[in-house]
Design a protein around this nucleic acid. Sequence first.
DNA 1: ATTAAATAATACCTGTAAGTATTAATTTAT
DNA 2: ATAAATTAATACTTACAGGTATTATTTAAT
Lengths: 146, 146
Amino acid sequence: MFISKTSEHALRILTYMALNYETQLSARNLFEELQIPKRYLMRLLTDLSKSGFIKAARGRNGGYVFARSLDTIYFSEIIDSVEGLLTFEGCVLGSTVCPVDKPCAMHQIWEKPKQTFLETLKSTTLADLRNGKNIRLKYSIKQIHH
Amino acid sequence: MFISKTSEHALRILTYMALNYETQLSARNLFEELQIPKRYLMRLLTDLSKSGFIKAARGRNGGYVFARSLDTIYFSEIIDSVEGLLTFEGCVLGSTVCPVDKPCAMHQIWEKPKQTFLETLKSTTLADLRNGKNIRLKYSIKQIHH
DNA sequence: ATTAAATAATACCTGTAAGTATTAATTTAT
DNA sequence: ATAAATTAATACTTACAGGTATTATTTAAT
Ligand code: SF4
Ligand code: SF4
């Protein structure tokens, strides 16, 4: 499963917004582009707003823009705010308390994929979606659903 | 979230069984060792049995042993049978249909952690838990919960 | 001022994963 | 044969993530 559906939504929202950094986008705009269930999308936007990633302009002609610089927003922080990072950082077998000095048979095997995953989350920001360091082409979620 | 709770259970069950390959283990034995909710554990054992990883001996003095050689059981197959692998292999943003020849902004960033994860699942077998290639010490889930 | 168009708050509903309960079937010890 | 100890099948319940609905609030165009 990897990440929760809600995290997927959040990442899509913020990715699209990052690629349109200069434009204020309303829930309506984002709905038309991303096709996330409308009311749920609206709630998520409010959540992301409360979390301080974006800021809302209320009332007519309202919408959302980023509240912080893109290069300060790490994927780890986004996922952390949506579903928490502890489930990723903790034991892959779900053990909440474990003497890591005495690793079980599973431990070593999962270390590499786990670290690679977390490293990427912790070292990549939304700005990296724009500056081309890590990307090839334009965001294309919408036209996927044809 | 990474993998489902049920996958965690399944991995713990099979890991423990792998480290006690020679011994037939009953649901009771496994419950005492792993402390997975008893009735759920029993159902999972039946599932793992149906999936062909283990085979059941019914009736008095019954229990479970592996149905196949440990070095043929890849972690990818275990997780696939429990929750499916498609959610891992597919798009990290949850898009079911995507023109991968035209990757979106997210694609490249997730490629490495995703591949590392899948590579490990697909290249590691339960036998690797025994032969020491990948492990350091003995399984120690139980004493974790003190 | 009024209305329209947006976000915010809050409560509710739904689908699915996780867990429980009950009963049946199988095997072996006595 | 009977009873005990096990797995199997099936249906039910619970918890929580995901999604809806309703109403309130804010802002700007008219
Ligand atoms: S040693 Fe085993 S139980 Fe402990 S954190 Fe590592 S994988 Fe989990
Ligand atoms: S290109 Fe984007 S939408 Fe398509 S599979 Fe890759 S991450 Fe998903």
